[in-house]
Every structure is written in structure tokens, then in C-alpha cells.
Amino acid sequence: MELGNIEKILEKYFEATATVDEERTLRAYFSQDEVAPHLEQYKPMFNYFSMAKEEKYTKPVPLKPRVNYYKWLSVAAAVVLAFGIYFGNQYQETKRLEQAKAEYAYEETKKAFDLLAENFNRGTEKVAYLNEFEEAKQKIYNNN
């Protein structure tokens, strides 16, 4: 490309009115070895820009497979819930049974105590006779 044209574009470049294509022309011009002496000073600028574009991002991105997370969370929740219901029911059932058993035992004990009390009362009645006998015996002893 002829020098006059380059100079014109360069001027536009510094006024920031050059297009992307024109700027590409400039970079192409300055990337060659032979540059007009009075433009030599701009060479580093354009070469630097071309070079800066070569830099690459090399660090790997640690993307976690985060997508399945919520799906598994719901599965876990469902499992926990199912277990909870199952064992919870079982627990309730055993508790109810136990209570029934306890109540039965209570009733039985009460019955047994009632029976005992009844028989006991009968026993004391008989013991009253024994007391009579004792008294009589004491009297006889005292008299002697």
C-alpha cells in the first residue's frame, strides 16, 4: 500500500475515526520489516497490539457437575421420608400395643388385689374368733 494512504489512515487512527478494517491495514503495514523511516516510531505500538492478542488463557476451569445436585437431593429426601413413615408407623404401632398391654396388666393386677382384699377381710373375721380365744386364755391364766 502506498505511503500517502497509510499516513492518511494513521491520522484518522489517532483521531479515532478509522474503521476496524483501516486499522487492520495499519497493523498489516507495520508488521512488515520495511517501514518508512519517519513512521518507524509507530511500529512498536502496532506490533504490541498484534502480539497482545496472542495471549491465551491456559488455566483450566474447574466446572463441577453441579447440575445433578438438586435431583439427587430430592431422591434423598424421598428416601428419608419413606423411611420415616415406615419406621414412624412401626413405632406408633408398638407404642399402642405396649399401652394396651400395660392397661391389661393394670386391670389384671387390680382384679388380683381385689380378690386378695376380699380374702383378707374374710381372714380377719376369722382372726376375731382367735382373739376371743386368746382373751379367754388370758383370763384363765390370770386367775391361776
Binding site: 487512527y13 489517532f14 483521531e15 479515532a16 475515526t17 516510531q41
Partner: peptide
């Protein structure tokens, strides 16, 4: 943007 760009380029030129 144009003003800032022009200014930046001219600063670079000046330094160079």
C-alpha cells in the same frame, strides 16, 4: 468513546 480512544492513542504516541 472516541475522545477517550483518541486521547489514549495520542498518549501512547507521545510516550513512544
Amino acid at each position: 468513546v472516541r475522545v477517550a480512544l483518541s486521547r489514549a492513542r495520542k498518549t501512547v504516541r507521545e510516550e513512544l
